[in-house]
């Protein structure tokens, strides 16, 4: 079966991964976390590579080091 329906109650962090599965962690406000090493094909040409054990891919498009997250997704506050 190519796709299984999402299980809304499961948490992969609580069970071992199958050997041939690469885990990806999605979140609403923040980067997509992917187990490294990775090669990222960019839309406008060019490839970004990283051999880090895990990489944070920017999903907000605000990063100045795209495709890597640089925490630019954070909420901002004028407090001083």
């Amino acid at each position: 079966m190519p796709n299984e329906a999402p299980d809304p109650t499961a948490d992969v962090r609580e069970r071992p991964a199958a050997d041939d599965v690469r885990r990806i962690y999605l979140q609403k406000d923040g980067p997509m976390l992917v187990e490294g090493p990775v090669e990222v094909q960019l839309e406008d040409g060019g490839v970004a590579t990283s051999d880090r054990f895990r990489v944070a891919l920017c999903t907000c498009r605000r990063s100045r080091r795209y495709p890597w997250c640089d925490t630019s997704h954070r909420r901002r506050r004028r407090d001083r």
Binding site: P31, R52, V55, D70
Partner: peptide, 15 residues
């Protein structure tokens, strides 16, 4: 450290 700690932050908080 910009890139590494953007990852480290996530791992340290969630794991």
């Amino acid at each position: 450290h910009v890139e590494a700690d953007a990852v480290h932050e996530q791992v340290v908080r969630h794991e």
